[in-house]
Design a protein around this nucleic acid. Structure first.
Length: 533
RNA sequence: GUGCCCGUAGCUCAGUGGUAGAGCAUUCGACUUUUAAUCGAAUGGCCGAAGGUUCGAAUCCUUCCGGGCACACCA
């Protein structure tokens, strides 16, 4: 039984299984690594707060890891979330307080810059905490690794000495990739200035593999400085750093955006020079905005995680990230409802599928083999329409409409639908409500509305939707010269009372909205108040 | 120039060797009285082009065509 599951997983065309299979067979040769576990890694830049790409990368890496665990259940795995918190800060980020204070520390490792937020030991620690909080909020399993700690603790010492031993070979790989200016000053080692604490980009004038040191000239004092490369006294330039880290930690799998393909190649070469085997890499496509432009934080286009989660549950974002990592996808508001509905469809089909089908179902991956039993009897698309048409941001009113369609649905019985209702309301408030355009009633329309107001007022207490609908209908007929077709009467009500050109069955609306409140609404319309205010 | 991705219905896209699909749009019908929703049905594709492999190709290979993106430094 378990054998056949392994076979199915091996043959599965789902990309996490394909990645896991390649990792197991090509990278590992089917054998457990000597370090005793298979290591997955995701990396984070120094200035970056967690963003939607971070989520995507960790989610995707986790899926490969889960798939791998099915293929090789007897091999332990780990996922390192590695923070480059020893990188020198290059420019002051826009979105932080105390910019002037931070400016005075430019060039220093992030972990040696005071926290501008004042909540942590350093700026680096602050960002790390944000990263961890972000990852934890999704329940990702990982081990956090800090570059600063790895360097300072001596964990990288052996590998750093190897870099020094292979100095010339590494320079020979790096130099041809650099412009002439950079070639003149390039060194894989960046000494941390003992005087100022700044990570220096200076030429190395001498290196001594036996002593484990390099010599450089302090750019301000002109003094020749000799420093060990170990123990945190030097940091590596990032491409050698990446290759060194793969070698030092024995990273078996790491994915990265396609803009990093040349860097991955270089880092892999360096890793091999050191005597290691580079990880299996997956280059995923970048995200585009609605106009097909690359999404970048500086441009501020595209969509943030917070934006997405405001309008839809995180499962839908996970599904979006699952789909076709190698195809460029547009990431903007309009893709959200579709992602939700496809998520629902996948979960609903899951439980009727055989094992092969389940392995191919995104829901298997998103939910770690255990998708929930039920989701929502209504699609998100329908719900969004409903919210717009029903013209309300009151969940209770919405549930009345929903029960017309799905009598068994309730906030308790269908919790996922309940979440969707909340999201749909936010969507309504942000996207539908602002587009409302109320118009004033004409003289003739005013007469009809006044009739309506008076008859609603006079309606027996507890009048139902049908009864109210009949009142509305009769008034429309009574004012036939104003409204040649009943359609015109209803259209007028939508435009004047609801600020939209379509709407709900008015009898139902008045019943749900409440006759008293409806009368108030009509009073305001008759008085000529601006209902959009 | 190098590399990657995409090209399937009007639109947005699923579909990695076995009878071409979904959603939206359009048209018609139902919901014993408006609209919308909902439900049912219909319409709609030479799967970018040409070769090749195969009993069989949207799918695999080759070459084109068209569109997009990445590739100094920094990360």
């Amino acid at each position: 039984m378990s054998d056949s599951l392994v076979d199915l997983a091996r043959d599965s065309s789902a990309w996490p299984f394909q990645e896991a299979r390649d990792l197991l067979e090509k990278r590992l040769g089917g054998k457990k690594p000597e370090k005793g576990y298979v290591l997955f890694e995701t990396g984070y830049g120094p200035s970056g707060l967690p963003h939607i790409g971070t989520f995507g990368e960790v989610a995707r890496t986790t899926w490969v890891r889960r798939a791998f665990q099915v293929l090789a259940p007897d091999m332990p795995t780990k996922l390192f979330a590695f923070s480059d918190d020893m990188d020198g800060l290059r420019k002051v980020p826009d979105n932080i307080p105390n910019k002037e204070m931070v400016r005075q520390h430019l060039g220093k490792p992030l972990t040696r810059i005071p926290d501008p937020f004042g909540t942590h030991e350093s700026f680096g620690h602050h960002n790390n905490a944000r990263l961890r909080g972000f990852l934890d909020s999704f329940g990702f399993e990982y081990e956090f690794k800090s570059a600063t700690e790895c360097y300072a603790s001596g964990m990288f010492d052996h590998a750093l000495k190897r870099v020094l031993e292979c100095y010339d070979e590494i320079m020979a790989v790096m130099l041809p990739t650099l412009g002439a200016e950079r070639q003149a000053t390039y060194s894989p080692f960046l000494p941390v200035c003992p005087r100022t604490g700044v990570v220096l980009q200076v030429p190395v004038i001498h290196h001594d593999a036996d002593a484990g040191t390099i010599v450089y000239v302090d750019p301000e004092t002109g003094e020749k400085m000799e420093t060990p490369v170990t123990g945190g006294a030097c940091k590596l330039q990032w491409k050698p750093d990446w290759g060194m880290r793969w070698y030092a930690l024995g990273v078996d799998y790491e994915m990265s955006g396609k803009d990093l393909i040349p860097s991955v190649d270089l880092a892999a070469k360096i890793c091999r020079i050191l005597g290691g085997t580079p990880p299996k890499n997956l280059s995923y496509e970048l995200f585009l905005d609605d106009k097909g432009q690359k999404i970048s934080k500086s441009k501020g286009n595209g969509l943030s995680v917070e934006d997405w989660l405001k309008y839809a549950p995180e499962e839908s974002l996970a599904l979006f990230m699952y789909q076709k990592p190698k195809a460029a996808k547009r990431l903007f508001f309009d893709v959200i409802p579709r992602a939700v509905d496809e998520y629902i469809a996948h979960v609903d089909s899951f439980h009727g599928q055989d094992d092969k089908g389940k392995f191919n179902n995104p829901a298997w991956h998103i939910h770690h083999a255990n998708p929930p039993k039920g989701t929502s009897p209504l699609s998100f698309g329908i719900l969004l329409n409903l919210v717009g048409v029903a013209n309300t941001d009151d969940p209770d009113v919405l549930w009345h409409y929903i029960r017309n369609y799905a009598p068994d649905a309730s906030p308790e019985a269908t919790p996922f639908l309940n979440k969707l209702v909340s999201h749909a309301i936010v969507y309504y408030n942000d996207f539908v409500k602002p587009t409302k355009q109320f118009r004033k009633a004409s003289e003739a329309e005013l007469k009809a509305l006044t009739d309506l107001r008076n008859q609603l007022k006079a309606a027996p207490a507890g009048a139902g939707a049908e009864e109210l609908q009949n009142i509305v209908y009769e008034i429309g007929k009574a004012h036939a010269e104003t409204f040649p077709g009943l359609r015109d009467w209803f259209k007028a009500q939508y435009e004047i009372l609801l600020g939209q050109d379509q709407g709900p069955r008015m009898g139902s609306f008045f019943a749900l909205y409440g006759v008293d409140k409806s009368v108030e609404l009509l009073d305001r319309a008759i008085a000529g108040d601006d209902l959009g205010a």
